[in-house]
Amino acid sequence: MATELSTRTREWLDEYRERRTVQDWLVDIGPFAMLILLVGLFSFTSDVFFTYGNFMGVLKNSTILLFVALAGTYPILQQSIDLSVAANVGLSGVVTAMLVGQFGLLALPLGAGVGLVLGMLNGVVFTKLKLPSFLVTLGTLSVAEGSALLLTGGSSVPFRNATVGWIATGELVPTIPNLVLWGALFYVVTTFVAWKTTFGRYCYALGESESVAELSGVDVDRYKIGVFVLSGLLCGVAGALLAARISSGAASMGDGLLLPSIAAIVMGGTALTGGVGGPHRTVLGVFVIAVLRNGLDLSGVHPFVQEIILGFVVIGAVWMSMDREKIDIVK
């Protein structure tokens, strides 16, 4: 019996390997290979790079990007996209900063709740009005940015509250910033949701074939709205933690997060055509982006040149992860 099972396993593995293309292997091992390559390269170009202090700095500086990338992963899994993530971070951060003086620690969940509401707005408009997700979220991007500017008058909103600041900058575990612990916690939670819950399985099902999922009795609109609510909540948490970290809120605090988050998602192995990848892969893309930026900074590369490099990285990542058979359904 054991021999028979072993034979069947080998046959299945052989068949699986035959079905896989070069592109499949690139998506699987590409992020790992690129991360190892970057670490090796920058270790030689900078004496500071391969140190514990710099490593923790990379983790801390990439945590907000991790939240935003995790937020964007779920819509992409179901063949949609959320372009409002960065603006959501800004609005949530502004509301958090404005409420700290009156509510203290309670301002953090209240600010995160703003992100959740914006995400719900995205999902409802997307599903009920039958509009493309990129157009809906492009519109709410403008709504969120305008609302943040209106609330602040275009200025930053500083505050002083040591307890709120400690939530992001303190060290519950010695030498590890709390911000890093928050990132690790939400990474584990979102990965669990994707792998072990009905909600997560239906996200993948919608990405594979929305029509088949609907014929199987899945309440498609419900799960689409749920995905955008989750995305908005994660952005709201990111905005609240960012405000706590810098003790201030500003409409522009989410600027520069949208493109790197999309780069991290597709570089990690979540295809824009949906149904492939997930949050467990997104973290790899975040690490690649974070290490790349940190290494380029230490190497003295001009920030404008870094943006050019990042743009080419995005193009390459999309090329590797795109399923050509489903390219006509990207929306």
Rank of each mutant, 00 (worst) to 15 (best):
M1G: 11
R10Q: 10
Y16E: 15
E18I: 06
R19E: 10
Q23N: 11
L26N: 09
V27W: 10
F32P: 00
A33F: 15
L37Y: 11
V39C: 08
G40A: 06
F44R: 10
S46N: 11
F55L: 15
F55H: 07
F55M: 11
L59G: 10
N61W: 08
L66E: 09
L66P: 03
V68K: 07
T73A: 06
P75D: 03
I76Y: 05
L77A: 04
Q79G: 03
S80F: 06
D82Y: 04
A86C: 06
S92L: 03
L105R: 02
L105G: 03
L106K: 00
L106G: 13
L108S: 11
P109H: 09
A112P: 06
V117L: 15
L118M: 14
L121S: 11
L121R: 03
L129A: 14
L131D: 04
S133C: 03
T140P: 03
A144E: 02
S147G: 02
L150G: 02
L150H: 10
I167Q: 10
T169V: 04
G170H: 14
P174D: 06
T175S: 12
I176W: 01
P177L: 07
G183Q: 05
A184C: 14
A184S: 05
F186I: 15
F186R: 08
Y187A: 14
V193F: 15
V193S: 07
C203I: 04
Y204A: 13
S211R: 14
V212A: 15
V218S: 07
R222Y: 15
K224S: 03
F228G: 07
V229T: 08
L234S: 07
L234M: 15
A240W: 12
A240R: 10
I246T: 13
S247R: 11
L257P: 01
L258N: 04
P260M: 00
I262L: 13
A264S: 12
A264P: 04
I265L: 07
G269H: 13
T270V: 02
L272E: 02
L272T: 04
L272G: 02
T273Y: 13
G275F: 12
V276C: 00
H280V: 09
G285F: 09
F287L: 15
N294L: 04
N294K: 05
D297W: 08
L298I: 11
S299H: 06
V301S: 03
P303T: 05
L310I: 13
I315E: 04
A317R: 12
S321K: 10
D323S: 10
D328V: 04
I329N: 04
